[in-house]
Design a protein around this nucleic acid. Sequence first.
RNA 1: GCCGGGGUGGCGGAAUUGGCAGACGCGUAGCACUCAAAAUGCUAUGGGAGCAAUCCCGUGAGAGUUCAAGUCUCUCCCUCGGCACCA
Length: 804
Amino acid sequence: MKYEPKKIEQNWQKFWEDNKIFKTKEDPQNPKYYVLDMFPYPSGLGLHVGHFKGYVATDIIARFKRMQGFNVLHPIGWDAFGLPAENFAIKTGIHPSITTAKNIANIKKQMQIAGLSYDWEKEINSTDADYYKWTQWIFLKLYEKGLAYKKLLPINWCPSCKTGLANEEVVDGACERCGSLVTKKEIEQWVLRITEYADRLLNDLDSLDWPEKIKEMQKNWIGKSIGWELIFKLKNKKEEVAVFTTRVDTLFGCTYAVLAPEHDLLKKLINDIENKEDVLNYLDQAKNKSDVERISEVKDKTGVEIKGLSLINPINNQEIKIFVADYVLGHYGTGAVMAVPAHDERDFDFAKKYNLPIKYVIKPKDRELDFEQAFVDDGILFDSADFDNLDSEQARKKIGEKLKNQGLAKEKINYKLRDWVFSRQRYWGEPIPIIHCEKCGIVPLAEKDLPLKLPEVEKYEPTGTGESPLSAISEWVNVSCPKCNGPAKRETNTMPQWAGSCWYYLRYLDPKNEKELVDKNKEKQWLPVDLYVGGAEHAVLHLLYARFWHKFLFDIGVVSTKEPFQKLRNVGLILAQDGQKMSKSKGNTVSPDQIVDEYSADTLRVYEMFMGPFDQAIAWNPQGLKGVFRFLNKTWDLLIESKENKDSSELVISETEKLIKKVTEDIEKMKFNTCVAFFMEYINFVFEHKKDFGREAIKKFILIFSPFAPHFCEQIWELLGNNSILALQPWPEINNELIIKNKIILVVQVNGKVRDKIEISGGISKDQALEKCQQSERVVQWLRNKEIKEVVYVPDKIINIVVK
RNA sequence: GCCGGGGUGGCGGAAUUGGCAGACGCGUAGCACUCAAAAUGCUAUGGGAGCAAUCCCGUGAGAGUUCAAGUCUCUCCCUCGGCACCA
């Protein structure tokens, strides 16, 4: 009998489905395990083999944990709001929900032919009104707690997608989605106060089992800095300017100050400025600069002196000039800085260009000052009055305290993180459940009126004016105010792509609940997610947003854990054969359907796990696929041939136990590539010992190989005469006693070089081992006429004889 | 510039965390089967020397620690990812 996957795979898939084998079990006796994939966007292109890598891995873990007796929750769903469906609708006039449904059906089929063991009863879709009702509900709660607000502010605008973007969606000054250069646009925006959670988002990272890289990225993105806010008084005026600094120790070196173009003082005192025209001109220029232009000027800073105004340095009462320059950011700190060119690169560049004084007040501890450049490290103070000879750290404390006592300073913490611009001027997203009343202002929808359904429109085309296509549907837009019954209009912006994915992992626990987002008991039973798998590209997008919402839901008592995803692992990309990223436009994608058809689902699964380390990007290689197919065939033939064997030899039993041990450990560590290598090694070994490969060993092999190649193993299991379902069998226990320990190969070195390998029985002493070595001619020839100086013995491993 | 990952045969990659470098797979070569090809099986496969047993060299470069270094320490080079005027 040959390995004929086409005859078996579909049968097993149908059997699993018909008998609901992978329905989530909730046996209170057993521990739970929640293993989750980042849910996909149902693209019209379907999934390519790269998408499957993560899904196969979580499937292996899910199957493994089920066999170990866990209640496993392994669900999947669809993150279906988003631009591709909407853009397709613009082109064809077909409603996004229709294309989305079609795409979902296709991808679902792809997942099924790969034998992925999802519990399809838990399936969710972020565009179902029953689902986004709760996304809107969370928004209302955020609004209620003052964490959602509407504000006119200059935001990142993608001229091609014709919508505003969040900070996190701008990569190198371009739109994360389409790559167009982002411009600034001032529109009224809904904004979420994620900054309120900055400290918790930062601190709780420590408790998470996540890749260091992702934690670092989030830390940097949140960007906490601890320093002082100082007051500089204007000379001969009552106004003052606050600046933020982390280097208050350099205050004696401050030779001028710089305001961001957005700084309030400029508007307020514009008529006191002698060179008003120049300044206004500069402000105008700065306003029209894109991020890319601003970034490109890093080495050539621009600015204008504000003549007629000056500031007083609070520490020494020195008068200093004021500039306006766009290297100072309006949105960070106070929008104003004290410039210390001697000890800051940026101020140094600016001072050089405009010929401003550079005054050194800190010197290095271990070398001479170099007056050709800024010295930015901590050091020892000089020319700093009472603070001379202090080191930077002490000086920061003392100078800060002194000014604090005079009411001119306070400790201050700043974050790079900015509030989350949450509205989009597009159609295919969750409507924001808000009404604008002429009299009452912003009025949130009542909970009972949720879901606020997305209306049908005739044109999906974004207007480009900063208004959403929804604004054109007057019968939807015009409503009466829930408060005063007067004329009112609906909010026409929609939520961003990320909204639905901020909480979907909660809905899987209880997907059909109409009364609550999630049942309390179910939430307590299943959270947190024990293993979350997805790409690293979501580090500061989805993963940060979801943590924020989760913490908010924790605060309002919806969830009981501080964090949603306890353990996170990144799946590495599968690149095309040419080493490039797989994409439709390059025409280098490989479809899983094609591979399943040509080889088998199990070949695809085993190959993807064997390619290399799970978290690493690796190019697709059709030859490697062939190798795996060869292995499966060889294994099949061997198992069929051996299945009538009764007992195994001690050696085979020992090797089988070793295999169980290694595979069990490596699945847990997600080292799937070495698992497959172990399977291959084992099969090569028993191939040499066919007659000794008995029933128990075969059974155990099939059990532990089944998460990798489930159809294959299920079929062999049946052929062995079992009536039970392999997927529901317990994982084999490791029996250490059966591992042979009395025949050990000891490596013998002389002066650190391997000279022989001898067989010993385990646990012998150093002297016994040395005696054995002296019986070996190969070893003895290196000892002749030499004096043994030392013998290093690592029991059962290695002996090193040091001679002179 | 800063932060993080990495550099091992012709290729993808192993190496119990300091103890046999190159497991496993691919590729390549030779042989067998075949009219032939594919498939399959067997053998070899880091480099060098040697008929051979065997010996020497070898994990980006250089130094160091150690009985022993791919693994630890220092200096440097290259590469991939992230952030980047955040005061």
